[in-house]
Nucleic acid binder design. Structure first.
Lengths: 247, 247
DNA sequence: TTTGTTAGTGTTATTTTTACACTTACTTAA
DNA sequence: TTAAGTAAGTGTAAAAATAACACTAACAAA
């Protein structure tokens, strides 16, 4: 890898869907810049790093994610660049960065990516987890390092828009076999709204790429639910231009 | 202005709606790198420049746009960063850039913005126009400089998505007083599809922020059309979260 | 006064959306 | 073995949105 460019970084907002807890979390990296107990989340940042001069932005994002979290085979999506000259807020942060990367840091523009994964499937490297990485609930994530709270807000908007428009990733989030209730609550978590059960199922019924497996849950203390799976081929096939416009 | 950062640039894709010609154009800046007559559009690039170290990306985009085109008071939207290390394709391009900016150019990541304006309202600086700037039809814009054809393709996608989701800019594109036919053809041009006249008008009828002025066109060689205007306040008011999802 | 041109309008059939409540099948604990 | 608890699963009717479709009206110019 060639030299790191001191003006360019990538940051990865990894949304993790916790199907058990029914919550949406983010993966953060912990540093020890602010020793104060009451420093809130100021020590927490998204996994990110400077970009090497010979790699593309996408390559950089995947590399950095793998190096810092061990995560691979997940789909990162670039959603925006952040370049306020004052996005490094504290001297301590600048000093930490300079120590960490071994270069003089002036102003850094970061290219932000997000991904949406299932926590119980894509486990970050366990060793790293203990040391440095944590899943935190998205609702407990005020006041992150740098401008990372702002980045988080923007990433959520991007996620929701993309999710509505092209719910591709949706099915990466569920087990191969899933129940309609799991599917619905995934939609609700990500879009931050709720749907009527019957209407939701009616809509799902029309999607020929969501197929019942004729197989049921077992071991549950209630009526067992039918299991479904997602057929990627059928999905891709039926995916054409959307011409709707909203007035 | 402080020093230019040799790793960072902004580029502005300005879409111009030509209501007379009913066409969508882009504003390009002409250089003289490739003297060959048959160099196609290789001399044409979007207005863009390196970012100064003390300005934000947005500030930079507005500054550059104004310096290179004279355009101001238009709304630029950042839509993506482009950072392939090989996006400067030809030696001639690199040399031109180094001469032009007076710095050594290695790899440059560009943050791309787009805007959608009405050609007959926002005129670029006429002097610049003659020398360097041209509106070209979007259909005649293959093989632009650098990776600018790729940037163009991505900007169109972004424009269409944004237009569907938040048709804010829509009304920046029309005269204060407009006819429904003008409105419709703007929609059709941007979204690249056609709509039934009656159904379109039915839909418009429901939008309380599009108000008839009780005033008609005159001097036209046919039945004069009612003029309408767009009421921004009413529009903003009725703008809430969209919860639809597509399955 | 005729011709050419765009404006403007209504209905019907189909599809989509929304709101809403009870029975079924299983486990667990009494 | 029975009762209690829990989530699964299901249908209907009213309202709204969409889609397809063709003629008359008002003006300018020839």
């Amino acid at each position: 890898m060639s030299a790191l460019n001191p003006s360019l970084s990538v940051d990865c907002v990894i949304f993790g869907l916790d199907t058990k807890e029914q919550s949406l979390k983010i993966l953060v990296y912990e540093r020890d810049i602010f020793p104060d107990e009451n420093s809130g989340n100021k020590n927490l940042k998204f996994p990110g790093s400077l970009v090497a001069n010979d790699e593309s932005l996408d390559e950089s994002a995947y590399r950095v994610l793998k190096e810092l979290t061990g995560l691979k085979n997940i789909c990162l999506k670039q959603f925006r660049a952040f370049g306020d000259p004052a996005r490094i807020k504290y001297d301590e942060e600048r000093e930490w960065s300079e120590r960490h990367y071994g270069v003089k840091i002036d102003r850094v523009v970061t290219i932000a990516y997000y991904a949406l994964i299932r926590i119980d499937e894509h486990n970050p490297d366990q060793k790293l987890i203990k040391d440095k990485l944590r899943w935190i609930n998205i609702d407990d994530s005020d006041n992150l390092a740098f401008d990372h709270s702002y980045i988080l807000a923007k990433s959520r908007e991007a996620l929701q828009q993309d999710f509505i428009f092209q719910n591709v990733m949706a099915f990466e989030l569920l087990p191969k076999k899933f129940t309609l209730q799991q599917l619905q609550s995934m939609y609700e978590l990500i879009l931050g709204s709720t749907f009527d059960k019957r209407n939701f199922r009616k809509k799902i019924g029309k999607a020929e790429y969501i197929v019942p497996l004729g197989e049921k849950q077992n071991g549950v203390a209630h009526k067992p639910a039918m299991l479904y799976s997602f057929e990627k081929e059928k999905f891709e096939a039926g995916r054409e231009g959307i011409t709707t416009f909203f007035i």
